[in-house]
Design a binder for these strands. Structure first.
Length: 551
RNA sequence: GACCCGUUGGUCAAGUGGUCAAGACGUCGCCCUCUCACGGCGGAGUCAGGGGUUCGACUCCCCUACGGGUUACCA
């Protein structure tokens, strides 16, 4: 068989050769130890927490080492294209602080190693496939879907491993004449790798490969023996081939990807060898899992829309909080570091792949919320204010008017109880924040809770009337509370909760019940931050107004 | 089915032959306290099971169980 002739027959239009591309995409000039990483999403436009999790690893590895982090669009599957997906991916990631140095962007490709969309690199892939054909390491396969299915069924019935390999690779050794006549007849074909892997042999003869994984250490697995598809019938490569060619030509040093790629690692290793290229460092991350019916399960695009990044954005989780959460589950020593460096920027943490967990991690909303509280409590009111406004602008239009022009008021509300060593941690995410402070806005103020059971309606009225009568907006906190105590004792309520606890039969309740009545009149809720401070923010007029209404 | 990866409290986890098996979230109790938070203190709760190796095993080996992943002209 004349492989050169075959290569020409298959790829008459390919005129460049691999050496040309080596020149076009030379090795990068970067400081020693600099890492080049990439994110390679398929453009479905859907991006979830798990993607961010991986992207974060890439971003940290590159930027911590003065390397490059680039975006490559893996659009080799035309069934998965979604309009505007690239923009959606970029903006989602950007919102959470993941930015690219190079690659696909809103304004088109940036950088010297493009094009960065695989659909535009067909000629490059074909050049390398052509080379493999010339060497006899790849061949055309004309099998139809039906034939492939038939092979699989036969393998199943014989209990042999499924796939296109060894004796099952029907078109592996087609003669030149057969190939030519099929092409002339217009049959469509794919190009397959002629795998050098062993097959059809006893178990103990199967060779193994070993690869150093950045996260998992030494991986040992059987070598590949599948004649995998390199080029699909439409001339576009499969993920496997595109990955190898692109990551070589784009000079990627570290390939960070999910553990679901582990089983295909032998394929990639064989391809790198076939093309004579060194392996990048593979880092197979653990999957983010979800609990369902008592079982862990990998996060899925279809089933878990609530894990979409847009969900967190629309709920109003602050990007810093999400990053902080991801960092804590990504590197087991992050939390410890954070306790020692409570105010250090996240970037100051030395992120390492070695500290990454390699078993599936459950997404834990409680933990995210807890972390979010700690992050938000450190943000100045001005920043929270801007954040809330931006969130409202994007997701709660009606609230914009409420905030616009009344920033001072909002900021006082946001800072309520946040001074001192033990600031309140009331805020978790924007939607919840507004819910929490909504009573400050008349349009959203409503009575939500009932008076305590031990306070009769008559008593409530008496308490509120007395309160209104004695109300002086200029009272300081101590004086103000003394007045509440007076109202309590005058009406049969203990001035101190402890007194009541000791002799419950002597009282109707205690001062807490009295203040609760006032609290409900003013806030509509039995639970709230400091009453006196709230009144100061609300203003005298509004305070009196609300009390009157309740009476 | 086959092949891979994995298994420390409810969750995230430290731990690499000798520890009373860290810590965080959650949970429970107490304290602080006009409510709620915040904060402080304390409690319960874990090495999947079985065999080895070893003076000694959460740590090393084997088997089983369980969980996850892959098995496409998807990525």
């Amino acid at each position: 068989m004349d492989y050169n002739k075959l290569a020409e027959l298959l790829f008459p239009n390919i005129t460049k050769d691999p050496a040309d591309y080596e020149k076009i995409y030379p090795e990068r000039k970067l400081p020693a130890g600099a890492k080049v990483t990439r994110l390679g999403p398929s453009p479905t436009g859907f991006i979830h927490l798990g993607n961010l999790y991986g992207a974060f690893v890439d971003e940290r590895l590159a930027h911590q080492s003065d390397g490059i982090f680039y975006l490559r669009i893996e659009d080799t599957d035309d069934k998965r294209q979604v309009e505007g997906a690239v923009e959606a991916i970029i903006s989602s990631l950007e919102f959470f602080g993941v930015t690219f140095d190079e690659g696909a962007s809103m304004e088109g490709d940036k950088g010297d190693y493009g094009p960065y969309s695989q659909s535009q690199r067909a000629e490059i892939y074909q050049t390398y496939v052509k080379q493999l054909v010339q060497r006899g390491e790849a061949y055309p396969c004309f099998c139809t879907e039906e034939e492939l299915t038939a092979i699989r069924e036969e393998q199943e019935s014989l209990k042999e491993n499924p796939g296109y390999y060894g004796k099952w690779a029907k078109h592996r050794d087609l003669s030149a004449a057969e190939i030519e006549s099929r092409i002339q007849a217009g049959h469509s074909f794919v190009i397959r790798l002629r795998s050098k892997g062993t097959h059809d042999c006893a178990e103990e003869e199967i060779k193994t490969i070993s690869v150093e994984d950045g996260i998992r250490g030494t991986l040992t697995m059987p070598e590949n023996d599948q004649d995998v598809v390199l080029l699909k019938a439409n001339g576009i490569p499969t993920y496997h081939f595109a990955h190898v060619v692109d990551d070589h030509l784009m000079r990627t040093t570290h390939v960070v990807r999910g553990a679901e790629w582990l089983p295909s690692l032998p394929i990639h290793v064989e391809l790198f060898h076939a093309l004579g290229w060194p392996l990048p460092v593979y880092c197979h991350t653990a999957q983010l899992m979800k609990m369902e019916d008592g079982n862990k399960r990998k996060l899925s695009k279809r089933k878990d829309p609530e894990l979409s990044l847009d969900y967190y954005r629309s709920e109003g989780y602050h990007p810093k909080a999400v990053r902080e959460y991801l960092l804590t589950i990504l590197n087991s020593n992050y939390e410890e570091w954070r306790m020692e460096n409570p105010d250090a920027p996240q970037e100051a943490f030395a992120f390492t792949v070695e500290k990454m967990s390699n078993s599936g991690t459950l997404f834990d909303l409680d933990k995210l919320n807890d972390i979010s509280k700690d992050v938000l409590v450190k943000l100045p009111a001005s920043e929270l204010c801007e954040f809330l406004k931006a969130w409202a602008g994007a997701y709660q239009q009606p609230l914009v008017g409420l905030f616009e022009g009344r920033e001072e008021y909002l900021m006082r509300i946001l800072d309520l109880g946040r001074e001192g060593d033990k600031p309140r941690k009331d805020f978790v995410f924007a939607r919840q924040m507004f819910e929490f402070i909504s009573y400050f806005y008349d349009d959203y103020f409503k009575i939500e809770d009932a008076y305590p059971e031990n306070v009769s309606n008559e008593d409530a009225k008496i308490i509120l009337s007395a309160y209104l009568e004695g109300y002086d907006h200029s009272d300081d906190q101590a004086l103000w509370f003394d007045k509440i105590r007076e109202i309590a004792t005058a009406n049969g309520y203990a001035a101190k909760p402890k007194d009541y606890k000791k002799n419950p039969e002597l009282y109707k309740g205690h001062v807490g019940d009295v203040s609760t009545v006032v609290r409900i009149a003013l806030m509509g809720r039995a639970m709230s931050p400091d009453l006196w401070e709230i009144q100061q923010i609300l203003g005298e007029e509004n305070t009196r107004e609300r009390i009157k209404k309740s009476i």
